[in-house]
Design a binder for these strands. Sequence first.
DNA 1: GAGTGGTCTAGACCACCAC
DNA 2: TGGTGGTCTAGACCACTCT
Lengths: 263, 263
Amino acid sequence: MPADAVLTSSVDPTSDRPVYKQIADHLREAIARGRLQEGKQLPSEAQLMDHYSVARMTIRNAVRLLQDEGLVTAEHGRGVYVRSRPPVRRLASDRFAERHRKEGKAAFIAEAQQVGATAQVDMIEVSEERPSAEIADRLGISDNASVVVRSRRYLLDGKPVETAISYIPADLAHGTPIGDPNPGPGGIYARLEERGHMLERFTEDVTTRMPTPQEVRLLNLPSGVPVFRLVRTAYDMDNRPVEVCDTVMAGDAYQLSYELPAR
Amino acid sequence: MPADAVLTSSVDPTSDRPVYKQIADHLREAIARGRLQEGKQLPSEAQLMDHYSVARMTIRNAVRLLQDEGLVTAEHGRGVYVRSRPPVRRLASDRFAERHRKEGKAAFIAEAQQVGATAQVDMIEVSEERPSAEIADRLGISDNASVVVRSRRYLLDGKPVETAISYIPADLAHGTPIGDPNPGPGGIYARLEERGHMLERFTEDVTTRMPTPQEVRLLNLPSGVPVFRLVRTAYDMDNRPVEVCDTVMAGDAYQLSYELPAR
DNA sequence: GAGTGGTCTAGACCACCAC
DNA sequence: TGGTGGTCTAGACCACTCT
């Protein structure tokens, strides 16, 4: 795609605004107005250099801005493309209600199949460790106590979308399959309830930030995509925390929906 | 701060990993290990060029990576500094419960004062318009109908943290001060309830993404900070949507907390 | 004025992709 | 093989901050 086909304007050298930002503005507007549609290739760096009569670094700075905004992704050897919004998975606030409560893996697969997506879970690891100060605090236990740690990664249609690490106080897990890779039907919540810890409520604390390099790898994130960090704590009827689940979710893959009573 | 004071290692030119990423790794580790503490200045570009014996663009690419991750912010003419996490405002899921329900502005100021912060609201604008397709859909009205649009910006300790735009169907607002800049004590929710639309529940849909350039200006966001978009819909006892509030929040200023029943 | 980061140029070589 | 983006160099001038 030649640059002139989508970009009519040229830069204003007398403007205070840096040239690369002006070029980014042009490209951003072309995307917003639909002259550059989702999935379409941007003019190549060479074409843009030619069109604007600037050096390559100026073009690269402009394109970098759009990458940081999450508007485009560069593919080495192929070109730069307008990002197409991936389908968003909507998480309803009643997803842990009793009537359809399942352990994470089962719930994930069931929900995915409902919308016709294929779901996988991989990188499952189970261990027993000392909790971090934050996890110990949320579980209301000493950080000298021991917790069962269950970590895994979720994929939708082959694309990784979420990592999750569950922490369960070891004294609640011992004598149950909670410490096994496969905790049995209904997952760890079923095992906890069998043990007498009927679940009463969950809290979810949601923050957002840019991913760490490790998270970029695990979730295969393009640049310009933030993550949700969602920490869920499960409480039993005695108001005792029985599980903390620390999840990191690809920010472009989820919409979190909650319902709040007004009275 | 000379580079040698915080960076012991040098780059491995035989590695496949690009030099600038290796340098970013060093700096990231120095931050993680506390050798570079919050608020501290990084070695200058000149010092880093000297330490690693590379060109300036290589250093700038490394520092840019850390900026994109939200770890550091560059200040023109001063230096590059390790970002200090601003205090986080925790939004509880019961903040719209009847017992302490107030309109946005009043609620914001009251909550801020509770934690000893000063709160301001500015850029208040009120108008009457046709709704976008999304807003009309959420309000369950025709996009030919008219809505009162109330927009404003919230600041904590002088720092802008949130923009909000409320949409109220015009037929609910007419004959009330909802269309005035100051809707009176208790805010628009009080006016809606006086009119017989007792509030029953709210839904909140939360997504995250990188800010637009406009949002960067309005919220004075450093690079590497995503935003929450939170769309709240208020329903009356007849399950009719009576308000949609579209807010964009600085991602580093908020933790959203929700409570979910398990049964 | 000295030191900082911000913008921009003009090249070079490389790695990846598609034809 | 030619075109794409990725990395890197070696300079230049500018704008901003602090003293």
